[in-house]
Design a protein around this nucleic acid. Sequence first.
DNA 1: TTGAAAGCGATACCAA
DNA 2: TTGGTATCGCTTTCAA
Lengths: 336, 336
Amino acid sequence: MGATTPTLDEVAQVAGVSRATASRAINGGNRVSPRALAAVEDAVRTLGYSPNPAARSLVTRRTESIALVVPEPDERVFADPFFGHTLRNVNRTLDDRDLQLVLLLARSGEEGRLLRYLSRRNVDGALVVSHHRNDRLAEHLVGLGLPCAFVGRPWTHADQISYVDTDNQAGGRMATRHLLDRGCRRIGTVAGSIDMAAGVDRLAGWRETLAAAGQASDAVAHGDFTEEGGVAAARSLLQQHPDLDGLFVASDLMAVGVMRVLAERGLAIPRDVAVVGYDDLDAAERTVPALTTIRNPVGEMAENATRLLLEQLGQKAPPPPVRVIYPPALVQRDSA
Amino acid sequence: MGATTPTLDEVAQVAGVSRATASRAINGGNRVSPRALAAVEDAVRTLGYSPNPAARSLVTRRTESIALVVPEPDERVFADPFFGHTLRNVNRTLDDRDLQLVLLLARSGEEGRLLRYLSRRNVDGALVVSHHRNDRLAEHLVGLGLPCAFVGRPWTHADQISYVDTDNQAGGRMATRHLLDRGCRRIGTVAGSIDMAAGVDRLAGWRETLAAAGQASDAVAHGDFTEEGGVAAARSLLQQHPDLDGLFVASDLMAVGVMRVLAERGLAIPRDVAVVGYDDLDAAERTVPALTTIRNPVGEMAENATRLLLEQLGQKAPPPPVRVIYPPALVQRDSA
DNA sequence: TTGAAAGCGATACCAA
DNA sequence: TTGGTATCGCTTTCAA
């Protein structure tokens, strides 16, 4: 079977109406008599008709799909629960609307294909997550005039783009203050990538708090937000600063790696070294001891970013950019 | 500014050629004089032209994109390293071709939207992963005549669909035999979902081997291939059969949960209870003790399925379905 | 409420 | 090698 897909013309013919009426009947049924509507619906059913999306969007100039853009080598995407939570909440927020979500990953480090896909307006809008300093996404999207919303502050064009974020610097301060308060005298950090706003801001919060307390802020190692990155960073950090008694780790996933290293070295958590993570995703509850961490409202952020994007899709003129910043919160468990 | 996107007509005008020539120049440049080609390329650049995909695919009847279909509630997708590996290898295999990969998840359990998307031929082909007994994907795709390939044997229409798989039953036998060989006398299993071929086949292999050895095969609990599912299954299994000394767990991820439960109960692995997992993804190396498991060539399968799909895309007539079955292999580590 | 007809922006055939 | 032109399948005025 699958010979040829029926067209709207055939539907109209079978229903005994014009193509125009058939079209109206299919799209909401406004200004169509009940009689004609029923006839068309019947015809659609018997013919197994489904509209050709190319033909449709050629005239409507809409694709009825939006992209979730993750400019990230795919290995990382699935290892990090952050993405799973985000995807899930985006998807959930889309439930009412008849929009298809298209997940776009930067294929093997080259973003050309990704940008081209967006340029061609294969989607009506884009949600950007895990944006890096040197990807050209913000610039590209603004130039394109494509509706978009970022999860996490864009590096450039931040005044022209709607985004949601948390106050990562405040989170870094909060974590560091907690370590100071529980008596740590030598506090290091496993920071995130410096090409991501979250990495930079959390580090700044840590540094600032130590400076205010008159402590040295030289014990820094950078991870890449992966568990293995946490392992490597912890190793080099402990190597250079064996006297550390507190660690602020810029993500829970990295903290898992860090805790593995501490365990290997026979260092007790929190007695020898106290550890504070960041994110409060499921990983945090499962570590031994349970991880004290800074809660990042990942789900709310994803949902809200999606809403910001959906709002733009209706409008013809781009609405003024909106910014939503969530406050972080300390979740105390057993590691600090 | 994103006023209006230039059309091919404008490009042609600027380049001083006809629309037909401009089109040829853009698509491969065959039968176009070097002079005309250069002029068009210039015009494209200065105008910032990119072709309208809707208009294009209206006539070519191709979308230049393929779907990775995951008929799975999204929570699970990201928790399982299986998907990450699959996605990554699919993506990698696509690197040479200028095809966009579109990830389609069944949104909150309803597959209607997903099937509709495929019906409309929004993609040129589909790769299906994690297919369940009661989803209508195989039937739907065959009915549609849409090129497709499955990772894992389809429940229906298996003779009309190309797919790759491993011999899961042989894997189940292999794992169980290993437990018998190391002296286990009372072997249970945490099986996978019975609505997935892999779940059923691995269980069958276990059962068959115990029967052949004259042992009881009544200690069965079902998990859903998640870590939490493994925890729950292990609890109920140990409750009912406290005398177990060997466990075949149908996925590494579930095995992680199972090992947590055993640890809680103070049961030593493998001394008190030997454990064999399935998949051999990264999780297996990280457990303590390291997990003995059955290796599933996930990467090769994904790559091969992608190739099977790509081959179909060229053809006008559907080529005969191809089936590739990989042999499983036991990877012995410390848990059994 | 209906239908005739004018596009939407490309590709591809065919004659030149 | 080129360009005129017929499509592709649908939505959307506009008159009736």
